[in-house]
Every structure is written in C-alpha cells, then in structure tokens.
Amino acid sequence: MKVQVHVSLKPGVLDPQGRAIHHALEGLGFAGVNDVRAGRLIELDVADDVSDEDLDQMCQKLLANMVIENYRIEKVPSKEPA
C-alpha cells in the first residue's frame, strides 16, 4: 500500500522558506501570488496490514514535529487491479 504523508507548518507559524520562495516568484515576474507555505511530502510503501493507528503514530512520533507541524495521511490507490 502506498501512503503519502503531507507535512505542513501549522497556521500562524512563520515560514521563512515559504517567504523566500514567494519573494523569488515575484522576482521572476509572477504577480498575484498572495502567500507561499512550504511543506514536505513523504511517501511510504507499507504492508497492507499496517493500521491507520500505526500510520498516525509514525507521523506523531517522527514524520511530523507536532509543536510546529500538521500532517495529513493520504492512501494512494493502487493502479493495478487487485
């Protein structure tokens, strides 16, 4: 089973990297970008019997820092027929 974990900074936490990217986009002439927040995508390939609870624990214990980050788990449907 393929799982994508999207890690993003919590709202209100200053994101210097996002700000720098925003600035660079403006420097390239792209107008109309209101805000940029940079996050992280972690792709896991896990056994089918790994529970949702296990995935949550992986995120809380390592993949995200709960002081500053939120996470969202997305299961990617297999392309091949089962």
Partner: peptide, 17 residues
C-alpha cells in the same frame, strides 16, 4: 533535546534564511 521532548518548543530555520 527539543525533538526528544526533553525541552519544549522547536528550532526552526533562521528568520533571515
């Protein structure tokens, strides 16, 4: 120490980058 939970808070990228 912050990542281990022995101290509160987190150390983020310097504001200046």
């Amino acid at each position: 120490l912050t990542e281990a939970g022995l101290l509160p808070g987190a150390l983020m990228r310097n504001a200046s980058q």
